[in-house]
Design a protein around this nucleic acid. Structure first.
Lengths: 186, 186
DNA sequence: ACCGCTTGAATGAACGTTCAATCGTTTTGC
DNA sequence: GCAAAACGATTGAACGTTCATTCAAGCGGT
């Protein structure tokens, strides 16, 4: 993972926070500059345009997320254990970094992103699901489908945990994980 | 449902298409005017501002969607049949109106929407899930959780059907519906 | 003295919104 | 029945603001 300078990090953090608060539109470069504690021109020393800033911000957080996913999987554990670890790790990551989740959801539905399909299509996660299906732990579906469904449902779970209203009651991470597991497992 | 004039309908349709293509930002009032075949000023005869236009567009499509949901449920059928009908109807609606789905997803993550929780919280659908849980068809979870999970997964299924790449193979509506049903049903 | 980083006022384009003028239809007065 | 007035709908050029971006000048380390 590319190392960022303090300034770059401050600019990324400010942009994420502002986008969460005001959306893509409504987040201006001078707001970003002010929040990051730099002058407007400084942003352009590191990023050639607002669009480039946003797409690099996406790539950076996408790599962060992939790291979280990859670190949750280990050959030492059973498939179901790995599935549970994946769920727990990504769920926690999204709860701790809701601004990243919100940003992703805005980004994939935005014109910034041309190819909306490969947000999580990195080989490690995909082969995890391929193995699970081949070895009979999961239903015989497309591995890509299993992967996208899993990641999407973790995001839903994290959002419900974070924004869910009290009526939803004791909606636990485990509860949603088990609902999904019961559906996808053989 | 409030009846719209031809002009209002044209403005709504153009806005939806443009937002799908260019996002909230990037969709300008003059683009909307041009696509709708009216002058810029005419939009302001019907909608007091861009923000108001977008929030009224949201309410309009939200009501459309609620109508689809309500029409899919009937007291004449069993719970599981109703669940299947709901899935099929909403799935088809989202496939036929992907621009509405994209718009919803942008909207709920945008600053336009203050309360992000009650997008589908209309009483008919909620009581359908309440009944299902009370009568032992579904797992003992919060009805709201069951509702949100269902609606979210139908949206995912519709998006995969529409944007999914060929690798995903014969990903059918029935397949995803059954995965979800197996997870939520007792 | 050099050089890369930083500044923030200046710039010009683009945007949402306004409004005086125009158009087409309906109502009024006779 | 008809002209005229009234009315709401429509137009699009013009307005003022805001924004992304630029760049000449300054700063600080070497």
């Amino acid at each position: 993972m590319k190392q960022l300078t303090d300034k770059q990090k401050a600019i990324f953090d400010s942009t994420l926070m502002l986008i969460r608060e005001h959306g893509f539109h409504g987040t201006t470069m001078s707001q970003v500059a002010k929040k990051a504690g730099v002058a407007a021109g400084t942003i352009y020393h590191y990023f050639e345009s607002k669009d480039k800033l946003i797409s690099e911000l996406y790539n950076y957080n996408r790599n962060l997320t992939i790291e979280v996913i990859d670190n949750s999987l280990s050959e030492k554990h059973s498939f179901k254990e790995n599935f549970y670890h994946l769920w727990e790790a990504l769920h926690q990551f999204y709860i701790d970094n809701t601004q990243i989740l919100i940003f992703f959801e805005q980004y994939v539905n935005s014109p910034y992103k041309a190819d909306k399909n490969n947000a999580y299509s990195h080989s490690r996660l995909l082969s995890f699901f391929e193995e699970g299906i081949k070895n009979g732990y999961l239903k015989k579906v497309s591995p890509k489908l299993a992967m996208v469904l899993t990641v999407s449902n973790i995001a839903i779970a994290a959002k419900m945990h974070k924004f869910g209203n009290p009526e939803a009651g004791s909606t636990s991470m485990e509860q949603m994980r088990d609902i999904f597991w019961d559906g996808i497992a053989v």
